[in-house]
């Protein structure tokens, strides 16, 4: 099985680090993984995106044009990537600041209030983990939570390891947003 994902949003929303945690979680679950970021000026506030592929077999292209799952965290990303969800695929987007909504009927669309949920948790930095919770819940491939926690440990520097329980909490919160 292969899951092809793109996560896109503003630089600073935690798009790249969310992709990194997802890739490491897959790695801990014995998958082949690739993590391919857009790089350069995006890191300083423009749009950033990262392609993450999780697969049972050797991964060919790390660069894609069609995705099983698109996560769009701003209008620009939604406009750009909604047409690139494979038929039958999944589109997750944060409602915040979205004025033009996608009208595709051949895919599953989950508009979520990730920012609202994050504020309920009381730490706005957990935003990307709330979104990741929704993504994990929407994925056909069920990544065991214990390996997600291992992925968090692997990708966060030691000095941030005390925040792992908060991140777990945020992921669990994110999971509830599509039910």
């Amino acid at each position: 099985m292969i899951t092809e994902i793109i996560i896109a949003g503003f630089g600073g929303q935690g798009v790249l680090s969310m992709g990194k945690i997802l890739a490491y979680s897959g790695l801990m679950d014995d998958k082949e993984v690739t993590w391919m970021p857009s790089y350069g000026p995006e890191q300083r506030g423009g749009t950033a995106n990262v392609t993450v592929i999780l697969s049972d077999e050797r991964i060919s292209s790390p660069v894609l044009d069609k995705y099983d799952i698109v996560v769009a965290l701003n209008q620009q990303s939604l406009d750009k990537f909604a047409p690139k969800v494979k038929p039958g695929g999944v589109l997750i987007y944060d409602n915040n600041g979205i004025h033009t909504r996608p009208d595709r009927t051949d895919i599953k669309i989950y508009p979520i209030d990730a920012m609202g949920a994050t504020l309920e948790l009381g730490n706005s930095k957990a935003y990307n983990m709330v979104v990741m919770g929704t993504l994990l819940e929407a994925m056909e491939y069920k990544l065991p939570m214990e390996n997600v926690v291992k992925g968090l440990k692997k990708s966060l520097p030691e000095r941030h390891h005390h925040l792992i329980p908060l991140n777990e909490q945020a992921i669990e919160k994110g999971r509830t947003l599509i039910h």
Binding site: A23, E32, V33, T34, W35, M36, P37, Y39, P62
Partner: peptide
Amino acid sequence: DGVVGQMMEK
């Protein structure tokens, strides 16, 4: 190239 330089893999 920039792809293999910037990409993360196992």
